[in-house]
């Protein structure tokens, strides 16, 4: 059909300036693209492109510097928060963030993650949890769900053999250095709006030197999960959210839920 041409049009949404024109290398439907874009939108809106340094370690998003038009460092697997610490300690007036996947942040880099947060480094840690290793071809992640079939758990993740999914976000929220901890998603327009608000708060807190802000983004991996993008969104809601519920986990001025004391 012919769609009539409208007059008097105003742009109400366009790609952020701080995102380069390089098309993403990510698979169709991958949440990385949305997360990148929203992060750059926040940097645009806060006008901090010149003051922001990002760190992206090994994983699908290691090439984030192709897309984010800011000064960036690529870090070794698991060491993004250590590199970000190094940057922030010599440039304390700048905004520094790391952008890490689940394997990076919650497996090989667990020590760096915990100690960076425990020191209360004034950085933002963005944690993309898609419960799988995307770049290496769909192996089990520390956050893979029980029973989840991956290329290294061909019979499903067996917690008796390999342990339960690691809820690292709840874990680090216990640390005094963590100032703002939240879990968001990018699968619906509303989820994206909430994520953007949280990212904005995180940068504002960083300006105030409040401690580590940590935002988990429950995302998808259609290729690794062997689902279509639309099926993967459904899978997130049905399988990921029961294990990784969305919302604030630690917010300034409010007490977090105390750990269970049943066994004490």
């Amino acid at each position: 059909m012919e769609i009539p041409v409208l007059e008097n049009l105003e742009v109400v949404y366009k790609k952020p300036e701080t995102l380069t024109d390089t098309p993403f290398h990510y698979c169709p439907g991958c949440g990385h693209g949305v997360a990148h874009r929203v992060l750059m939108e926040v940097i645009d809106e806060l006008g901090i492109q010149e003051e922001t340094i990002g760190v992206a370690p090994v994983g699908c998003s290691v090439f984030a510097y192709h897309y984010m038009n800011i000064d960036m460092q690529q870090a070794a697997h698991g060491r993004a928060s250590a590199a970000a610490t190094g940057i922030k300690r010599v440039l304390p007036e700048k905004y520094v963030f790391s952008y890490q996947g689940d394997g990076d942040l919650a497996a090989i880099g667990t020590a760096e993650t915990i100690h960076t947060v425990n020191r209360g480094e004034n950085i933002l840690m963005v944690f993309i949890n898609n419960a799988i290793y995307g770049m290496t071809g769909g192996q089990m992640a520390p956050t893979s769900l029980c029973g989840q079939v991956t290329s290294t758990t061909p019979y499903g993740r067996d917690p008796a053999k390999i342990g339960f999914p690691l809820k690292i976000t709840e874990l680090i929220a216990q640390l005094p250095g963590a100032y703002f901890v939240a879990r968001h998603a990018v699968h619906t327009p509303n989820a994206v709006r909430k994520l953007k608000k949280a990212l904005r708060s995180a940068f504002e807190y960083q300006k105030l030197n409040k401690g580590t802000c940590f935002i988990e983004i429950v995302s998808n991996c259609p290729s690794g999960w062997k689902l279509s993008p639309l099926e993967s969104q459904k899978w997130i809601e049905e399988n990921m959210f029961p294990m990784y519920p969305l919302g604030d986990i630690k917010v300034p001025g409010k007490n977090i839920t105390a750990p269970s004391t049943e066994n004490n």
């Binding site: 760190v55 460092q73 870090a75 070794a76 060491r79 250590a82 590199a83 970000a84 610490t85 190094g86 940057i87 300690r89 010599v90 020590a111 760096e112 100690h115």
Partner: peptide, 10 residues
Amino acid sequence: VASINMIYGA
């Protein structure tokens, strides 16, 4: 491991 990666960043 963390030290040397802090060096990398700084």
